[in-house]
Design a binder for these strands. Sequence first.
DNA 1: ACCCTTATTCTCTATTTGAGCATAATTGAA
DNA 2: TTCAATTATGCTCAAATAGAGAATAAGGGT
Lengths: 352, 352
Amino acid sequence: MRSEASTEGVTVGLNAVIVAVTEGVPRILSVPWQGADEDSDSTREALPFGLLDPMRDRTLELGLRRWVEEQTDLSLGYVEQLYTFGDRDREPPGERQGRRALSIGYLALVKESQVGGGGRWRDWYSFFPWEDRREGPPTLIANSVQPALARWVEGSADSGERRNRRERADIAFGLGGARWDGERALDRYELLYEAGLVGEARRDRVVGQAQEGLEAEGQSEWPNPIPGRSLCLDHRRILATALGRLRGKIRYRPVIFELLPREFTLLQLQRVVESLAGVGLHKQNFRRLVAHAGLVEGTGKQTVHTGGRPAELFRFRREVLHERPAPGVGLPEMPEPAATRGGGLDSAYALH
Amino acid sequence: MRSEASTEGVTVGLNAVIVAVTEGVPRILSVPWQGADEDSDSTREALPFGLLDPMRDRTLELGLRRWVEEQTDLSLGYVEQLYTFGDRDREPPGERQGRRALSIGYLALVKESQVGGGGRWRDWYSFFPWEDRREGPPTLIANSVQPALARWVEGSADSGERRNRRERADIAFGLGGARWDGERALDRYELLYEAGLVGEARRDRVVGQAQEGLEAEGQSEWPNPIPGRSLCLDHRRILATALGRLRGKIRYRPVIFELLPREFTLLQLQRVVESLAGVGLHKQNFRRLVAHAGLVEGTGKQTVHTGGRPAELFRFRREVLHERPAPGVGLPEMPEPAATRGGGLDSAYALH
DNA sequence: ACCCTTATTCTCTATTTGAGCATAATTGAA
DNA sequence: TTCAATTATGCTCAAATAGAGAATAAGGGT
């Protein structure tokens, strides 16, 4: 059961989403990019990446660590493989040079203290403004995303396809009575890509999956993109994958402490969780949750106060790994967002 | 920030873990294997796999579907990418032919009706006998795994390393007061591999990460492997990844219905969940859970009875995707396994 | 002393779990 | 026909968890 095929000319790129949280802002490291993208300045930026050296790197993760440490002065703590992307059509035409490119995305977490002046630490939400709901659902969704998606839904001639699109849009963005699910960050980005609502789609000549009514190459017909910084190649897709994965992970593994100093206040911890989850949390209940779950333990020490009563310093409690099968900060199911209710796109269904 | 490296000679294999559940037994499809493994018959079997044809396959997943459908008469429903493996040292020496092999693992779910006579549908737990706890913790753990791991722990000269090993073993296998976590199937397999307790380790000449006291090549010193069917290359590792991932997934996405006919009884549903999760569930509470969560809805129809009172037929309720952010069967945290308590390996800690 | 800010403790209620008892509807055997 | 076995389904009760917020504590500044 082996099919013989020419696998020559495959290039393996290792891409790192390197995350840190500073002052409540989740940030990722980006680097300049001198590729052949024809698009504007916004895509002249990339995730740090390098090629796998098959003769040198014993494992993929070691390869990643090698050149991250060669090229930055970061020391990566937690590293996790995310996904391998290899769509032929997800590269800009200028980049395709006869060889097929795979990119393996990695998620790496570093502590705030590692955020130096060197690289560009971009606010993660500058790439996905619709993902930050700490202050409630962003107006961007009601003002831009929802109408644009509605147009995309209506843009299909086939009524079954319209239902399908409406369903996907509702579930991804929590419209029409559906609830917002922070972990679906990739679904949301992919949907916008398919609908031609992000710059990369235009660059790749994506025509929203049989986007009837629009000419494939009729560039004047492209809808206005939703705001949000682009990246070269498929790097914003990798970034969305990382966001969704990390949001899921913090719920059942104590990875959040990789982003914090050894000792921290509960509010610091809460802010880091909130910044990644993209939702605001109830302070007293959050405290009860992490304390009761045995995730943290108090050191006797106190902070030098910054504003109010001094807070106790806590540290991660390693023993929790013994006690619970899935120790994490178990985010609440967010309260129903009053804002976007009702005006949704309505429903149908398609799995995947 | 691109490092130039020779990426020639990389081969991309697409591997499928194709899962079905029949009569309460979770099964995966395997195929014969004529590779250069020197080991015994047990490794002459493989996951179905094929090579990516970079010129032909537009996406990785399409490539996978192409040759699965070419080579079997299965129609894959749900397909999900698992992980990309590329350790140089995880292939048997005979297989390394100058080129580096990456394997991208996929998980695919098919319905019971697809299980034909064609392939070999192996009981998933025949590869991982320690993972099936439906009848409580298997005696295999207390009888074989625990003592063998204890020897491995003691096999290190360095006391810090011993603590580290003990910690990992405890958490992975739920020993020493730690709780069993079904999703750590990969951790468990990797631990056994490192400890030289599975056949593949011997084949690959792994010396349990600085296994002092054993000669690297002194084959007579190898510990007896833990029972369980082997596979060629790193396929058992992919299989373990799939098991852990699927166990996690059924908790928050309704993928379980991909394995069931369109209409089913609640007991059928429960048996499928149990078979994958590897634990037994409380019947009445399971019923309450899935009904109350809105995951299923009754059709008026009844089964033709098989033994007792006829059961109502249910079907998956698509609308649940609108109502809950993470619809799944939310497994309970298993009751404390009375059997393995107390006799554990004791504790220390190491993240990851 | 009083106000502002943040921390921390508690209460109260509603919901979700865990466990098990009781009842219902079949089939097959006595 | 009646009973035993078997599976389905409904219901209860207590414990644990989650959501919301009041009340109190401990700092700084004016």
